[in-house]
Computed example of a mutant assay.
Amino acid sequence: MRVVAGIICCGFLVNLGTDKELGDRLKDRELTEAEKDFVNALRLGHILAFATGSSTIPAMGFNPNPKLSFSHDEAKVHPIAHTCANELQLFVNNRTLANNDEFEYIILAGLMNGAVFSTV
C-alpha cells in the first residue's frame, strides 16, 4: 500500500517537473505572499491530503488504493479529488498541456484550496 501512495506522489512531482523546484518553475508568475509561503512549505503530504483526505499513509494502508485518472475535457482545468475513492482526477487539455507554467499554477491553486480539508 505504501508503495502505491509513493508512486502516485512521485508521479505527481514528475508532472510538476522535478528538474526544477516548483518555486523556480513559477518564478515568472506574480504570486501572492500566501502562494509564495505555500510553495515554500509544500510537501508530499499536501498532495496526499488533497487526493485522499489524509496527509499520512494509514497503518493498514488505503482502502481503496489511491488512483490517478486523466480526463480529456477542454472546459475544466483544476484537479478534482474524490477523497472517498482516493482518486485524483487531472484534466488534459490545451490549457494544461501548454508549454508554460500553467499546469504547475493550476496544481498549486488546487492544493492551496484543498488545504482546508486536512492539515499537514
Rank of each mutant, 00 (worst) to 15 (best):
L26F: 09
Q89C: 08
T52R: 14
L42T: 01
R43H: 00
G110S: 13
A81C: 03
A41I: 01
G45Q: 15
P79D: 00
I7N: 14
F38M: 06
L42D: 03
C10A: 13
R43S: 01
F62C: 10
F91K: 02
F103G: 00
I57H: 00
V3R: 14
N40R: 05
L42C: 07
A41F: 05
R95N: 08
L26V: 05
V116S: 14
L108A: 06
H72A: 11
S71L: 14
A34W: 00
S55P: 15
N99S: 12
A109P: 05
N113A: 10
E30G: 08
D24R: 09
C84Q: 01
R29P: 00
N100T: 10
C84L: 01
Q89K: 13
D28L: 10
P58F: 10
V4F: 13
V77Q: 03
P58N: 08
E35A: 15
E74A: 09
Q89D: 03
T96H: 00
H78W: 02
C9N: 12
P58C: 13
S69M: 04
M60F: 08
K67Y: 00
E35R: 08
A98F: 07
L44Y: 04
A109C: 11
F62P: 02
L88H: 06
E35T: 11
L22M: 13
R25M: 02
K36W: 03
T18G: 04
F50W: 12
A49E: 06
N94W: 09
E74F: 03
A51Q: 01
L68K: 02
N99V: 06
L88E: 03
K36S: 04
T52H: 14
N86G: 03
V116W: 15
R29C: 05
A51Y: 02
S55W: 15
S118R: 11
P79G: 00
E21K: 12
L108V: 07
L26N: 07
E74M: 05
T56V: 12
R25L: 09
A5D: 02
D24M: 09
A85F: 08
A115D: 15
A98S: 08
L42Q: 04
F12V: 02
T96I: 00
T83A: 07
G45A: 13
S69V: 11
L16I: 09
N93T: 07
